[in-house]
Nucleic acid binder design. Structure first.
Length: 226
DNA sequence: GCGACAG
DNA sequence: ATCTTGTCGC
């Protein structure tokens, strides 16, 4: 890692510096063949963590590659600066996969962020890969509840900008918040999320990644000293 | 000033 | 994120 910010001001400066590098034009791969899910789990001390990257075949939703990395939180939790906590360990995990995924599906937001630079943008810019954010709860923006049916959606609007979509991935189940991270159009991002969520609320990518990093913690991969 | 606030 | 029992619904 290069410059690890230590203060809120430094972290915000990093986001402001990288934000112009976000690609909001590229539509993304027409037919993503592999998709990576990323997630982290925290140890009981709340300091050590395990990050997992799981690469799935988009057609079969089967795991074709995966990796785990362990580390320590790199920043206090501050809404809007969440990425700095997990970024170093997530990047370590990404370094350990041998596949180059067509899209990164991140557990958090992309441009649906106060400074339009959430975790998905950060990971997209740093890796140069198309990336999207799938959040379980909103960070910014207002919206109307989508219709009850799976596939229904409403725009997520912050001020005068549409920063994402509120997407129903299961009938009558709480929707997810999808936003562009890097190099992928919102339409395509939402289609992909639905493809990745045939059965559960969250995409298989994040479900598998969540499973893997939790298993890593149980397995004691994260030990003393970390 | 008061509340909201990804994971 | 993580701490946690029962409960509603298919």
């Amino acid at each position: 890692m290069i410059s690890a910010p230590r203060t809120i001001a430094e972290a915000e400066a990093v986001q402001d510096r990288l934000r112009p590098l976000v690609d909001l034009v590229g539509p993304g791969p027409a037919e993503p063949r592999t998709v990576a899910g990323l997630d982290v789990a925290y140890a009981e001390d709340g300091v050590r963590l395990a990050a997992a990257v799981v690469v799935l075949d988009t057609r079969t939703l089967t795991v074709v590659d995966s990796a785990v990395a362990v580390g320590r939180v790199a920043f206090d939790y501050v809404p809007g600066l969440f990425a700095f906590r997990e970024l170093p360990t997530l990047l370590d995990a990404l370094d350990r996969i041998t596949t180059i995924p067509d899209v990164l599906v991140c557990d958090g937001h992309g441009i649906a962020h106060p400074r339009r630079f959430g975790l998905a943008c950060h990971l997209g810019v740093l890796t140069g890969r198309p990336a999207i954010g799938v959040g379980k709860t909103p960070l910014v923006g207002s919206w109307e509840p989508p219709a009850r049916q799976r596939g229904a959606w409403t725009p997520l609007i912050d001020g005068t900008e549409t920063v994402g979509r509120v997407v129903r991935t299961r009938d009558g189940v709480k929707p997810v918040f999808v936003s562009v991270g890097h190099g992928m159009a919102l339409d395509n991002a939402c289609s992909l999320v639905l493809t990745l969520s045939p059965q559960y609320r969250l995409p298989e990518t994040t479900r598998q990644a969540d499973r893997l990093c939790r298993a890593a913690l149980v397995a004691g991969v994260v030990t003393d000293r970390g």
